[in-house]
Design a protein around this nucleic acid. Structure first.
Lengths: 257, 257
DNA sequence: GAGACTCCTTATACGGTGTACGAGGCGCGG
DNA sequence: CCGCGCCTCGTACACCGTATAAGGAGTCTC
């Protein structure tokens, strides 16, 4: 095993996935196991959030002391990297492959990716800080790249298109999951939380002015059903924009500009 | 002042910007001041990152003990929320207003927003976790909303368009700033760091397979100058896609679909 | 059966964190 | 001079990640 202190010496590629070691099997009395540890971590992260996730608490949940975990894992960050890669597996790549054309494949991927981020609100803050080069993350990345390749955009445009679509999904999933988390922490439904927040803002003189020019948008949204419906609708519309934009760029390129 | 423990009781809107208190002026011997604290925090966050930012270290830099800070501020999170709003001020809204049409205004806003995220790599991880309803953040938000309104999209589509553009910018700025941070931590130029990473991946049998189908893209990128140029180019292309997409949706709506 | 060796778990300890609490010191109005 | 507000500090608590070393259980060897 590698001491955490030594890991920092290789900052360029500090990641579990580089310098990989064979997992240690769970022959011990506690029946521990890297997979069991990671699975418990995901459960705990989902339940308690990133702030409520500590080595001691995780160990307690597994009926063991904190230091036992270090037999299977070098650092807490490694566990998080494993957890990240685990949840990437939730994206159903077979369903993506079944898509008829690049439009459908991109939509399926985007929706699945977004759902994954919302299911695991700790993901987006973490994902930004690690390399995300585990096998599952890479499999998803390859599929994204293939889908973009299918658009017919020139090579020089494909990275930009990939960013436009999937950085958007990342950002959207981040906002949505944080909203859901806040509502849950307040013990409210998303609808109650939303209408409560809007009302609170409207009453606060400090925010009334800023809110006023968007009254029409707020009204339109309020008349359009539940908050979760609105999340779906806005996301779908954004994807429509992106698909239309890619189509327009493809047309522009083939027009010889 | 409000004890940190009590703050948690209002999880719905836990933010400095709700329940606001007048800033305490710096009449004390240390010449302290909320503004001075926040300015020092931004400096420290830029230099040492989020992980290197602690109350004790911040206090030391101000020539004071940690507990002194709590006279001006309730919690560490409050400082971060103030810091976030401070850097939003770097987005030049006057330059946005000078834009000729919505295309230019959106482009200016997006570029400024991205630059701000890259200048302050701690921003993106933080921004996702707070409400960002400080005065400067709200001013930027209003300007974004105005710009989107200028596209001529129907009300129902404007939130989606706003997400498509600015969640993308957020995601892109996140990735870019993390890359820059990693390169800096490794003590390399971005170019050296990039080519080194690609080479390392190509040599590692575990990644060779995943990298192989994107050889053409990597070659195209390698032939296209420095990494920073590529960041610019991809970002610009993605913005082109978004603008083209919005135009297409406007045309589609006015065609009466 | 005794010893050694490997695998796993543990106890203890270090240096850090955010921050609650209470004791001061300093300047000012009475 | 006294008290009172403002501001700073010392101390302490609970918690964190993890380095280090010791301990226990099983198995293999002689």
């Amino acid at each position: 095993m590698v001491k955490a202190a030594d890991r920092a010496k290789n900052p360029a590629g500090s990641s579990v996935w580089l310098e990989q070691r064979a997992p240690r099997s769970g022959g011990g009395p506690a029946g521990l196991d890297r997979d069991r540890i990671v699975a418990a971590s995901v459960r705990m992260l989902d339940r308690d959030g990133l702030g409520g996730f500590s080595m001691r608490r995780l160990a307690a949940e597994l009926g063991v002391t904190a230091m036992s975990l270090y037999w299977y894992v070098d650092t807490k960050d490694d566990i998080i990297e494993y957890a990240i890669d685990t949840v990437y597996r939730e994206i159903d790549l077979d369903a993506v492959d079944a898509g008829a054309d690049w439009r459908e494949r991109i939509r399926t991927l985007a929706l699945d990716y977004r759902r994954m981020l919302v299911r695991h609100p700790w993901m987006s803050p973490c994902a930004g800080q690690y390399l995300n080069i585990g096998p599952c993350a890479i499999a998803v990345g390859s599929r994204i790249q293939e889908a973009i390749r299918g658009t017919g955009l020139p090579l020089s445009g494909q990275p930009g298109a990939m960013s436009a679509v999937f950085q958007f999904v990342y950002g959207y999933g981040t906002i949505e999951s944080q909203f859901e988390r806040r509502a849950a922490e307040a013990g409210m439904s998303q609808d109650d939380f939303y209408t409560g927040s809007v009302a609170a803002f409207r009453d606060d003189p400090q925010f009334r002015e800023a809110l006023e020019p968007m009254t029409d948008i707020l009204d339109e949204r309020a008349s359009h059903g539940s908050v979760t419906d609105i999340w779906e609708r806005d996301f779908a519309y954004a994807l429509d924009i992106l698909v239309a934009g890619i189509e327009a760029m493809v047309a522009r390129e083939s027009a010889g500009t």
